[in-house]
Simulated scan of single mutants.
Amino acid sequence: MNERYPHRINIAIDGPAGAGKSTVARLVASTLRYVYVDTGAMYRAVTYVAIARGIRPNDEEGLASLATGLDISLLPGEEGQIVLADGDDVTGQIRTREVTASVSLVSANAGVRSRMSELQRLMAAAKGVVMDGRDIGTHVLPDAELKVFLTASPRERATRRFLELGDKPGVTLDQLEEEIALRDRMDSERDIAPLRQAPDALLIDSTGRSIAEIVDEIVSLGLAAAQTVGAREN
Score class of each variant (00 low, 15 high):
residue 117 S to I: 02
residue 118 E to G: 06
residue 119 L to I: 06
residue 119 L to D: 04
residue 119 L to S: 04
residue 119 L to T: 04
residue 120 Q to N: 02
residue 124 A to E: 00
residue 124 A to W: 00
residue 125 A to G: 04
residue 125 A to K: 12
residue 125 A to W: 03
residue 126 A to S: 15
residue 127 K to V: 00
residue 128 G to R: 07
residue 129 V to N: 01
residue 129 V to P: 00
residue 129 V to W: 01
residue 131 M to D: 03
residue 132 D to A: 09
residue 132 D to V: 03
residue 133 G to I: 00
residue 133 G to R: 01
residue 135 D to S: 08
residue 135 D to C: 08
residue 136 I to M: 03
residue 136 I to V: 05
residue 138 T to Q: 03
residue 139 H to F: 07
residue 139 H to Y: 08
residue 139 H to C: 07
residue 139 H to D: 06
residue 141 L to F: 01
residue 143 D to L: 10
residue 144 A to S: 06
residue 144 A to C: 06
residue 145 E to H: 08
residue 145 E to V: 06
residue 146 L to Q: 05
residue 147 K to C: 05
residue 148 V to S: 03
residue 148 V to H: 05
residue 150 L to V: 09
residue 150 L to G: 03
residue 150 L to T: 08
residue 151 T to P: 09
residue 152 A to H: 14
residue 152 A to V: 10
residue 154 P to A: 15
residue 154 P to V: 15
residue 155 R to M: 14
residue 155 R to G: 08
residue 156 E to M: 07
residue 156 E to Q: 11
residue 156 E to P: 06
residue 156 E to F: 07
residue 158 A to F: 08
residue 159 T to N: 12
residue 160 R to K: 10
residue 161 R to G: 04
residue 161 R to N: 07
residue 163 L to G: 09
residue 164 E to C: 11
residue 164 E to H: 07
residue 164 E to S: 11
residue 165 L to W: 06
residue 165 L to S: 12
residue 165 L to C: 10
residue 169 P to N: 09
residue 171 V to M: 06
residue 171 V to F: 08
residue 172 T to Q: 11
residue 172 T to M: 13
residue 172 T to A: 12
residue 173 L to C: 12
residue 174 D to G: 15
residue 175 Q to M: 07
residue 175 Q to W: 11
residue 175 Q to C: 15
residue 175 Q to E: 13
residue 177 E to Q: 11
residue 177 E to V: 11
residue 177 E to A: 10
residue 178 E to N: 12
residue 180 I to S: 07
residue 180 I to C: 10
residue 181 A to R: 13
residue 181 A to M: 12
residue 182 L to M: 13
residue 182 L to P: 07
residue 183 R to W: 11
residue 183 R to M: 13
residue 183 R to K: 09
residue 184 D to G: 14
residue 185 R to C: 13
residue 185 R to Q: 13
residue 185 R to A: 14
residue 185 R to D: 13
residue 186 M to F: 10
residue 187 D to K: 04
residue 187 D to S: 15
residue 187 D to F: 03
residue 189 E to T: 12
residue 189 E to M: 15
residue 190 R to H: 15
residue 190 R to C: 09
residue 191 D to R: 15
residue 191 D to P: 04
residue 191 D to E: 13
residue 192 I to E: 06
residue 193 A to M: 05
residue 193 A to L: 05
residue 193 A to P: 01
residue 194 P to C: 08
residue 195 L to G: 04
residue 196 R to H: 06
residue 196 R to D: 01
residue 197 Q to S: 09
residue 197 Q to H: 11
residue 198 A to G: 07
residue 198 A to H: 11
residue 199 P to S: 11
residue 200 D to M: 08
residue 200 D to V: 04
residue 201 A to R: 08
residue 202 L to Q: 12
residue 202 L to A: 09
residue 203 L to P: 04
residue 204 I to D: 01
